[in-house]
């Protein structure tokens, strides 16, 4: 009897120490969370996207109606996609270019350089906060700092948040302003480039500009790809800035009605959950499509060391 339990506990111990058991014990939080907070909600969301649902009465199956409505009846939606694409396609490349140039200029290892880097990182650190959005709103107000600078330079004041052609630019500028985290990642990538590459280039008489385009850029291309994809996704999901600055309206005339804000308003202001879910799926498809295109084209401009 005693021997038997001893055998059982040995068996149990052996079972517990098997790789499969250990793996699933440790991965369990992820598996539960993935099913409960990602897969199940995704399925529910897909179902809602084919229904009319206002949270009061039961969801009503409407087939593809929500998707059709989006592209044929809802000009605000089409506009919202357009505004978001404009924001992402302008701010992300400029942000990365800025990050790259500053990282390249600040490569030397010195106390001063690491202080500079930290200072340039501060906007990224706080940029997502409500506080910064409120400051931004004041800086670009009619009598704000930016307009006063323009005025003192002899230019006309711009009604930044009153003019539909101007309104997205402060938001784009705010995104570019937060180039710090990309810069830190690029700076880390730069330290991995062997110094011998630059020495060889210098011997061949290549100046700093040539070195940048023929050594730095190709060597960093995998890191640039990673940053491009991550920043693009962040850009598509941009919400706090436009919510705070436009008071949740996306004004003027929907010029800052970003995709994420429009989904939020459809869901939590109009309680049109079915329609909002359908829009969220279009957002997912759009992001996947652009990511796919970036990866497809990346073979032409991304160079891996061991090729």
């Amino acid at each position: 009897m005693a021997k038997n339990t001893g055998g059982n506990s040995l068996k149990l111990k052996k079972f517990l120490n098997r790789d499969n058991t250990v793996g699933y014990v440790f991965a369990l939080p992820f598996i539960i969370g993935f099913l409960g907070f990602t897969i199940v909600p995704m399925i529910v969301s897909l179902y809602f996207s084919f229904t009319n649902y206002n949270m009061i009465s039961a969801p009503q199956w409407v087939g593809l109606k929500n998707y059709v409505r989006m592209f044929t009846e809802d000009n605000r939606f089409v506009n919202s996609v357009g505004v978001t694409l404009k924001y992402v396609f302008i701010s992300v490349p400029l942000k990365l270019i800025f990050a790259l140039i500053v990282a390249f200029l600040l490569t030397r290892k010195s106390k001063a350089v690491s202080v500079y880097r930290s200072v340039y990182y501060i906007p990224s650190l706080i940029g997502g906060s409500v506080a910064v959005s409120l400051v931004w709103k004041q800086l670009f107000s009619t009598k704000g700092l930016i307009n006063n600078i323009l005025h003192s330079l002899g230019m006309a004041r711009i009604s930044w948040f009153g003019d539909e052609h101007a309104a997205v630019w402060p938001l784009i500028l705010m995104a570019i302003w937060q180039f710090g985290s990309s810069m830190i990642i690029f700076a880390a990538g730069l330290t991995q480039i062997p110094a011998s590459y630059y020495e060889a280039a210098r011997i061949d008489g290549a100046g700093i500009v040539k070195q940048f385009f023929f050594i730095t850029l190709p060597s960093l291309s995998p890191v640039i790809l990673f940053n491009l994809v991550m920043q693009m996704i962040t850009g598509f999901m941009s919400f706090t800035q436009t919510y705070v600055i436009s008071n949740g309206t996306g004004d003027p005339n929907d010029a800052t009605n970003f995709f994420a804000l429009y989904i939020y308003n459809q869901a939590f202001k109009y309680f049109d959950m079915g329609y909002a879910s359908a829009m969220a799926w279009i957002l997912l498809i759009l992001i996947s499509l652009i990511t796919f295109i970036i990866f497809k084209t990346s073979s032409t401009w991304v160079f891996y060391e061991n090729e």
Partner: peptide, 18 residues
């Protein structure tokens, strides 16, 4: 999940919690 926009799961999550 790194690439999944939170908007996709936000609405059902809200309804479940509600």
């Amino acid at each position: 999940t790194l690439m999944l926009p939170s908007q996709v799961v936000m609405i059902p999550q809200y309804i479940i919690f509600q």
